[in-house]
Amino acid sequence: MNNKMLLEIKDLAIHYITVDGTVKAVQDMNLEIAEGETLGLVGETGAGKTTTALGIMQLVPNPPGKIVSGEIIFEGENLIGKSPNELRKIRGKQISMIFQDPMTSLNPVMTVGEQIAEVVKLHENVNSAEATEKAKQMLLKVGIPAERSKEYPHQFSGGMRQRVVIAIALACNPKLLIADEPTTALDVTIQAQVLELMKSLKTEFNTSMIMITHDLGIVAEVCDKVAIMYAGNVIEYTDKVNLFTTPKHPYTIGLFNSIPDIESDVERLNPIKGLMPDPTDLPTGCPFHPRCDKAMPICSTRVPANTEVQMGHFVKCLLFEEGVVR
């Protein structure tokens, strides 16, 4: 894609400083998203996906969290260091986020129409009547009859509530939508509805998107490119076709081998051995080395650099690094 670059993350590191030690939740992160592009951010519990999203939104809770280094360039401007006032104008208008728990992101004592209208009023120069009208339009867009705008969240099913959340997130036509596991809590037929809706709205508005998920099936379906995270690091980053046809990092390959393949009969899964490392006490060298079936002696001492194995395909693994004695 030769579209204009919308977001560039450069050398980002985010830590949480706790009594149990420092959690390096995001380390040495480099990503970019062009206009209209969807990036999948994939990883297991604690990999640092939500922290990355909060970093982009400048909403990392501080304390204990802190952006220790890096830049987040949105439309040519670094978001780090912007004033709270400037950020408020960007959030919800330019960049909006669907949070991991859909049920907690709606206000139980406001009607869904009011909640959409509120965001519109905050960011656009409109009066109440116009905002209310816009809210109704947005509800229709997500497949909810406009007359239900006067109802409260508890009167909706889980799938409809998630659609309301999407309507709020897209109400001001943001350039970037960050969706943190937007369908994890939903049943698969409802998930299919919601994904279909997100795809069509994205095309309609040419919105860029970061789709956070642990489901490689969702990646196959909606993403253009993918970043796989493990223990705070993006260990593989490439376009979707490369990721599915020539995955390189042993963790990525392990993930693929761990999921049952619905298209063929595999008698036995081939899981990654061992457990997630303690986030306050990550292994030395490559954080994945204790679980890696390709690990070499050097992997426990040397931190892998981000290596471009072929054009646009980045891997953090010593197997692919030049000048490493294997």
């Binding site: 698969v188 409802i190 099936g217 619905i262």
Partner: peptide, 19 residues
């Protein structure tokens, strides 16, 4: 409706209406 983690499989999705 199952999202399949493969690129070589295309499913004709039946999107159910309603809840």
């Amino acid at each position: 409706a199952i999202p399949v983690p493969r690129l070589d499989v295309h499913r004709d999705r039946i999107i159910l209406e309603g809840d």
